[in-house]
Structures are given as structure tokens and as C-alpha cells.
């Protein structure tokens, strides 16, 4: 440990940031509720329930809060509402399915449907009519007939 002493100020800052306690432990309550809440640390796109980043400044206290609220008897909805009340709807891992934010789910489906329709139109437009085309054989017969006419 002696070499650490030379860097005590640095070590204190960085190690303290990294120091963890039981608050970072993920129990079933944290996993269940936390996966519906976004980690707002700004460094990842994980949820509070599965963020494993070292010393995460958002998820660790958020988990502690979830554990505390659940132990006080709060329902999952109440816990989530508490976060939304404090942080706004950005606290949710996925925007609520209402109003303009509903379009996040609708637009991919709409685009897929438009694509299917475009394929349908393409097939209708470019599909060859049902009767089989007579290509080489027909032309061969024509040429042969012409040649035979010439011979006569």
C-alpha cells in the first residue's frame, strides 16, 4: 500500500467515487422496477435495473431509493411515479404511450406497413401477366418457318 500514499489525494477522489456499498446490489425489487427507469447518468443507455457501470452517479442512489420505497410498502407504480415527479418523463426508460410520444411505437409499424404496401404495388406493377411468354422457341419457329419459306 506504500505506493498508494504518494497519490493519496488522487486515490481519495477517484476511489471514493468508485467506492460502493449495498446500494449498488441488485435485488429482485430493484431489477423489476429499475428496468422501467432510465439511468440518467449521461454515460449509458441502460436502465437503473441493469446499469452496471462502476460508480454510476445515478443508478446507485436510485436503487437505494427503490429499496427504501418498496420496504415502506410503495407499489411499483408509486415508485415510478415518484421518479417521474422528480425528474420528469425522461426518468422512464421508454416514453409513455400517450400523446406525441405514442409515435415512437407507431412510426416503425407505419413504415413497415408502407414498405409492405410498396412491395405489393411493385409486384402488381412488375409481375408478368399469367400466360407464359414464348421466347426462344417461338422465335426459333418463326426463323425456321421463314427459312423454309425461303427454300421453297
Amino acid at each position: 500500500m506504500s505506493r498508494f500514499k504518494r497519490f493519496i489525494p488522487l486515490v481519495l477522489v477517484a476511489w471514493a467515487l468508485g467506492a460502493q456499498n449495498a446500494s449498488m446490489m441488485i435485488n429482485p425489487d430493484v431489477r423489476r422496477v429499475g428496468t422501467k427507469l432510465a439511468c440518467l447518468c449521461g454515460s449509458c443507455k441502460n436502465t437503473v435495473g441493469d446499469c452496471q457501470m462502476i460508480g454510476c452517479g445515478y443508478s446507485s442512489p436510485a436503487r437505494t431509493e427503490i429499496v427504501n420505497l418498496v420496504s415502506l410498502g410503495a407499489s411499483d407504480e408509486n415508485v415510478i411515479a415518484k421518479f417521474v415527479q422528480r425528474e420528469g418523463i425522461k426518468a422512464l426508460a421508454v416514453p409513455p404511450s400517450s400523446g406525441f410520444n405514442l409515435s415512437i411505437w407507431i412510426m416503425p409499424i407505419v413504415m413497415l406497413m408502407l414498405g409492405l404496401y410498396a412491395i405489393f404495388v411493385y409486384i402488381q406493377r412488375y409481375r408478368r401477366p399469367a400466360p407464359a411468354p414464348v421466347t426462344v422457341a417461338h422465335r426459333f419457329h418463326e426463323i425456321a418457318a421463314k427459312d423454309l419459306d425461303g427454300l421453297e
Partner: peptide, 22 residues
Amino acid sequence: WGTLFPVISEYATGEKVSVDAP
């Protein structure tokens, strides 16, 4: 769409949203 949605949503509604892995 998911990547740009936070920007689009903030522009449309004035409120920030998160679009994460789920």
C-alpha cells in the same frame, strides 16, 4: 427513429424523454 426521438420529442412537446435499450 429511436436515436433521434429524444430530440424530436423535445422539439415537439418541450419535454425531454429517454429512449433506452428496452
